[in-house]
């Protein structure tokens, strides 16, 4: 498998706190890679460095061989990286459809046009994306009255607007009901398969992670402590210690 994303020795500190220390990993084409770890492990910090929102102190992130570090988020997006946020970020004063249309207009470089009506731009494409995430019936609702779980789906539709090769999803299922979570992750897994893209996501719900991830990376206190298939990670002693302390194990739990 070819590597889409290659992260080498990534590091970031805030004042005296080393949030991310020397993290390296690869992400293959068509892979659904989960990023897990307790609160404060450095997951979101890493994410924010991957799309240019935070400046890394050192290290390198190559996307299809091109360096990402040092670029603005908007330029990373133009390279073909979409992202969703832990705390949803959408355009509150627009309708659901307009949110996706705006992303599509940006992708097609229409946004500096003073002429024409936005409402006529890329309607079919936008509706297709909303259909994909199951929001078509709500397309004309104002974004600021949507349920949180639906906003998460909307973010996914927006992130897919530039036909990305890589999706970064920061806690895509947080705030959703258990059934919704499974649904959203199944949807993500389907998208990965159909479009042959790669997804890196973080998640606290281990059911979701172990059911869908092809591979898992475990962070703790800014350090990468384990990496492997769900089975390998499940049986990793350091991971068990981090998550459960010394006493019990995932195995015990299952038994």
């Amino acid at each position: 498998m070819t590597s889409v994303l290659s992260v080498q020795n990534l590091a970031k500190s805030f004042g005296g706190v080393q949030a991310v220390k020397d993290v390296s990993f690869d992400l293959a084409k068509g892979e659904l890679l989960a990023f897990i770890g307790p609160n404060g492990a450095g997951k979101t910090t890493t994410f924010n460095m991957l799309n240019g929102q935070l400046k890394a102190n050192s290290g390198s992130v190559k996307f299809n061989g091109e360096e990402i570090i040092g670029r603005e988020p908007r330029d990373v997006w133009k390279m073909g990286v979409g992202r969703t946020f832990q705390i949803t970020a959408t355009f509150g004063t627009m309708t659901v459809l307009e949110n996706v249309q705006t992303a599509l207009m940006s992708y097609h470089r229409n946004l500096f046009s003073l002429f024409g009506k936005s409402s006529k731009h890329h309607v079919d494409d936008a509706l297709a994306l909303l259909d994909l995430v199951g929001l078509e019936s709500q397309s004309h609702r104002a974004c600021n009255v949507m349920a949180y779980g639906d906003l998460k789906r909307l973010e996914l539709a927006i992130a897919l607007a530039n036909d990305p090769k890589l999706l970064l999803m920061d806690e895509p299922a947080a705030g959703m009901a258990p059934l919704e979570r499974i649904g959203l992750m199944q949807l993500t897994a389907d998208i990965v398969k159909e479009r042959n893209i790669s997804v890196l996501f973080t998640e606290h719900d281990m059911d979701v992670v172990f059911a869908h991830a092809h591979r898992i990376i475990v962070l703790n206190r800014g350090e990468l402590i384990a990496e492997g298939t769900p089975e390998e990670v499940r049986n990793n002693e350091r991971v068990q210690e981090v998550y459960l302390g010394g006493g019990s194990t995932f195995k015990d739990e299952e038994d």
Partner: peptide
């Protein structure tokens, strides 16, 4: 953040 994340 959303705007910058979609290339604006």
């Amino acid at each position: 953040v959303r705007s910058e994340a979609i290339g604006i």
